[in-house]
Design a protein around this nucleic acid. Structure first.
Lengths: 252, 252
DNA sequence: GCGAACGAACATCTTCTGTGTTTGAATTGA
DNA sequence: TCAATTCAAACACAGAAGATGTTCGTTCGC
């Protein structure tokens, strides 16, 4: 069992029990207690848990989005495929808006090698885009949320209002036909809505685990989006329904 | 001779001759041609040179600022000391503006552990600040210059106009009593001037190699700055003159 | 105050990175 | 077009960096 698997075990336990003990994890994973302590310290740095004597307690918020460090390791393959597919929806010379989120960062990796103008809504995506030297990079102003490194607030909304994009690539936390597209955070909803107003074509990226989910912040009905890119695990039924709402769906 | 020294040799040659050959560099450094090619490819990626058959030609602009990758390795110790000294000029709770540039990034490393509100004018500084989780991070909007990763343009100026800072930490390319503080780039000058208008206290950071230098863009007279942080290699005469202009000078 | 947990320090092992060599393909200049 | 040079991919190797486990003195909670 390597480091990544241990992290998964720890997070799973935290979700199930709300707390973990160093001794139990050491036995469960077959590693020394020292190693478990180092793992816990690492996760504490990322805001996933809080260390207590003998173990740790969960900081994973119920009804809120898990930290970036956790989401980054969920559905990794699907997100990479979705990212590549988004690359094919964008042609050189376009102005593109990239939402926050782990799926969009995968799209950013692809777009970083393209000759486009791009505005990312997170520092994570900005870092990826600035490594490839071909894209023209435009930053929105705004407050940066810790951990997520996503831009929010009125400054961000103002930046979006000032620019028009050919394509906006948006992420979401939940997607259902009855409740539409939803996000965890109301501030994030405001940004997404502003993004949609500024873009000619709106592409939604969502791995199949998000289909059928509903979270608190309502972004809009599914029909507000032009294209959905999801993965092959999405059920035929749900895809058919979304298509019936007038959305072009790519399953990759 | 390690990798860093080889880069210095290559850059020195490029400056002196305008071009270099793989064979000559291999002999000069005592390393294989393959290694030299890899070095040249690396520098080509950073925009320092352009590969040609048998060697490379310089892209180092005359009368312009050298690329970030080069400046990053000049006066490293002095910049670190200056960064620490800037940390002592900023107290918790302040709102701080950080200019672009390698010296300011060193200051950002120190300030990343502090409880302040901070707006960086480059993605380099933003990346450093977002690693420490204590500072509240505010991004200005704007275009990102490749390589430098500095924010410029009207969006950046507008962002600066919208906020007031307790302290602005500005860098420069040249600093002389007769010609004042100068930068290489006019767009950068506009940003610096906007920054000065938005800050109560303006701190200038400049390692001693910049004292006496004059470059194209005029930012303002030395007396426009409240504090100068430089290193101990700055001459007594120049420091005395700058102090006479009403600037508090820290030599570290 | 006692036992458990902690973390610093060191040793060991693994993985990564940088370097050199070889070899066949590409490029240059005559 | 040809010959010499240059290039870059592939492999081998060494040193650096990171991860892990053990020991031991300190700290913490009951």
């Amino acid at each position: 069992m390597d480091s990544a698997e241990r992290m998964d075990v720890i997070v799973a336990r935290l979700r199930a029990e709300g707390e973990v003990s160093v001794a139990a994890l050491a036995e469960l994973t077959g590693h020394s207690e020292m190693t478990i302590r180092r793992d816990l310290d690492h996760l504490a740095d990322k805001g996933v848990l809080r260390r207590v004597h003998g173990g740790a307690v969960s900081l994973l918020p119920r009804g809120q989005e898990p930290p970036y460090a956790i989401r980054e390791r969920m559905a990794v393959d699907a997100k990479k495929r979705i990212g590549r597919a988004v690359g094919e929806l964008v042609s050189d010379g376009q102005a593109v808006l990239l939402d926050r989120g782990t799926t969009v960062v995968e799209a950013a990796r692809v777009l970083a090698e393209r000759h486009i103008t791009v505005m990312p809504l997170s520092l994570q995506a900005a870092a990826v885009l600035s490594e490839g030297n071909t894209a023209r990079l435009l930053m929105p102003g705004g407050e940066v949320r810790p951990g997520e490194l996503a831009m929010t607030g009125p400054l961000t909304e103002a930046s979006l209002a000032a620019v028009r994009f050919d394509t906006a690539v948006l992420s979401c936390c939940g997607l259902s036909l009855s409740d539409g597209v939803t996000a965890y955070d109301l501030a994030d909803v405001a940004i997404k809505r502003a993004a949609m107003r500024s873009a000619r074509q709106v592409v939604l990226v969502a791995d199949s685990t998000k289909i059928g989910q509903v979270t608190m912040g309502h972004v809009g009905p599914v029909s507000d989006f032009d294209v959905l890119v999801t993965d092959t695990d999405a059920s035929d039924d749900s895809v058919a329904e979304i298509r019936a709402a007038g959305v072009v769906v790519h399953r990759v």
